[in-house]
Design a protein around this nucleic acid. Structure first.
Lengths: 232, 232, 232, 232
DNA sequence: CATGAATGAGCCTTCATTCAT
DNA sequence: GATGAATGAAGGCTCATTCAT
């Protein structure tokens, strides 16, 4: 589990009702079990055991196994988007924001291959994950277009390229099949695919990645902006 | 099942020993069952029943369910690559060959969404599929690079972009989430990502797709050329 | 099933938690099924059916079929040893205790051939059974040695003779191959093999067998004595 | 496989019709497979493969798996008895013959634990084995009685003791549970059980074991003598 | 709410045996 | 007689889900 996310994911949530706290523990346990066994290989009994509860309790919170995947997907997507958005604070250029986002996912796959594979697995089982992330990506895409940095044949085509490429790159990296610097190079390809000049694409993709801010500091103002674009 | 492939896939194979004929029937049955239920949802008993045999027979040919997926993956990859390669007869431009390949996969997802989802499902369960296709894509990529049509940061990055984008586009199309003309537009994005000028990319991507030749005619000479690039 | 054991084996266990009660029922059912079909011929489904439960429940209590055999072995060994030890109350002579033990096993094979064959079958599948009994036999053996009634080349040789002979005699008796009085004569042979004079051996082996006391009466004080010798 | 038996068991049989030769090969293969997997764990397909044949061929020679066990049992018993009898050439004392036989079995378990366990397994699955051996043991027993060396309560009791003790000792030795010199000590116990004086029993059991003669030399005259006693 | 024993449908897999070639 | 593909009945085992306590 990448540290940058671990802090967010495992952080005990104060001020939550007991029911909600139990639910969070279950989702955290599910992440562990999915990471170890994959979604298909995970069992509700192991999930319960890891959470220190019983199967009955799990079913008090989730009607089915799929619903657990859903909850995990939502938590993962939310955490990922929030953290990445926080790290983009103050960056106004759509192209750079896009490059940062793309590379962060690939970077996470380097930091924790197991976790990346689990995320891809969950994304396949619970489409909510991609849907949740979609808005953030779309916001950066549209920003880039508005700033005349991008020119795309269609938003749908661009989104498929971005999502598909990143997913595949995460897999390659997690499986140890990718050469060094893969993140930079993949980001370069994507920026080009979005219509940037080769040189400009490369320059943007090679800018240093802004670090994740300490948890609790970033105003998360951008998150709202992204949310506004939701399903729009 | 898209007609263009059906002919190849279901064609009875003459001159095969009995054992081999049974095996082919089993693989064909597996394709049907995987299409109907997905890999995870398929059962060996249904597979056997659809093939008109017994479970024991299935296990005489495949040690495990995964091995069935493997065989299906190989047949699918082989058929796809052979048919597409055949349709590319006489096309010497790497960029156009790439555009044709990319669009054909997406076109297939339009023609038969179920089949496309099955193929993606099998690809996830049996990595052999992608590996088999890889050589063909790589040959076109290298051809384009040699012809100065493409300029890529790294082959690995380019391949991840191509594979990832096409897979995601197939999914979008199969699920009915893509706008009309998605194939053209996605291909345009990919060509750009490979380093082409926007205008050139669009022009190539919008050329008419060459039809599949009738089965048995194409000399499959290209296939050998591609094979030569194999693992090179 | 010999009455003398049936009372112990089938006696419903009061004051047990639900889980434990279910487990006992399953073991009792297993004894029935093993008796009817042998260990190899027994199936988990029949076991479940006889216990009035489902296969899933069986697997909630025993991970594998072997584990069932183990549980049966332990129960059988425990019951046998406890009942026989109870019947030996107040008998201080090692030689006589040995003769009683030996003859009781053979006597049980007479009373219930099916049950004897099942026990031998389970003993082959689950060595725990013999291991459990071992301590009791060893205690009597050592007692006899201490009392100068026995003189053996080695404990290991003596134990192999005792166990092997009794097992074979049980089989002969259960299969109806043994002449009348087999128990007495086999016991005589064993006592001789342990170093007793022929006349003394015969005399001891022909003493009347003490009856099993009613269940619940015997203080089982001896059991502790035997247990003390455990693995010593 | 103990060398002393290997020579006999694997020796190609000249002057046998083809059918008979095939059969012998199958039995030899069965011995290998039973040794590796046990009777229950052996499959007809592996047996066929090891013999370099097909399952159909196996069924041309044996109606069922049990029949294979039978054939193996007969070959084992015959080989064992013949070789041991050969080694007893010229020994006229029943007690010594008995001691030699007993110790040889235990010695074989030392030489080749796998083989011993296989033999015990086959003996359990095919009672023919013990029945075949029975006559040889019985002959020595009766000889000893006639010579006043033994005095037994009943032949049946004595036979159960001999068979049971040897089988158990073989198991102990094969499993590595027996102390050094176990064969001698067990034989001593058995001789005592047959009525010999402790000192005499020990003396006889500690005489050196006569070696196996080279194959083909021994007239096997005793074998006929033993056979005469068969089922007598 | 939590518990956790029980459920039961159903899956993958094995293998002795048959039979057309 | 040999072949070996096909059979098919069964068996061990899993696990999402329910429900009485």
């Amino acid at each position: 589990m990448p540290d940058a996310l671990a802090e967010s994911l495992w952080r005990p949530q104060p001020g939550l009702a007991k029911r909600e706290r139990t639910r969070v523990q279950l989702v955290q346990a599910a992440i562990q079990v999915f990471t170890a066994r994959g979604f298909a290989g995970a069992t509700m009994q192991e999930l319960a055991a890891v959470a220190g509860m019983t199967t009955g309790t799990v079913y008090n919170h989730f009607k089915t196994k799929e619903e657990v995947a859903s909850a995990v997907a939502l938590l993962l997507a939310d955490t990922l988007c929030r953290r990445i958005t926080d790290s983009q604070q103050g960056i106004a250029e759509g192209a750079q924001r896009m490059a940062i986002g793309n590379q962060r996912y690939i970077w996470l796959a380097e930091q924790s291959p197991q976790w990346a594979l689990m995320t891809l697995d969950v994304a396949a089982a619970a489409p909510e994950l991609l849907l949740e992330i979609r808005d953030y990506v779309l916001a950066d895409l549209r920003l880039g277009v508005k700033q005349k940095a991008f020119r795309v044949p269609s938003e749908a085509a661009a989104m498929d390229m971005i999502n598909g490429t990143i997913a595949q790159a995460m897999r390659s990296v997690a499986l140890g099949l990718a050469p060094p610097n893969h993140g930079r190079e993949v980001a370069t390809c994507v920026l080009r695919g979005l219509g940037m000049e080769p040189a400009a694409a490369k320059e943007v993709a090679y800018r240093p990645l802004p670090p994740f801010p300490p948890i609790g500091e970033a105003p998360a103002a951008r998150a709202k902006g992204a949310a506004r674009a939701k399903r729009g």
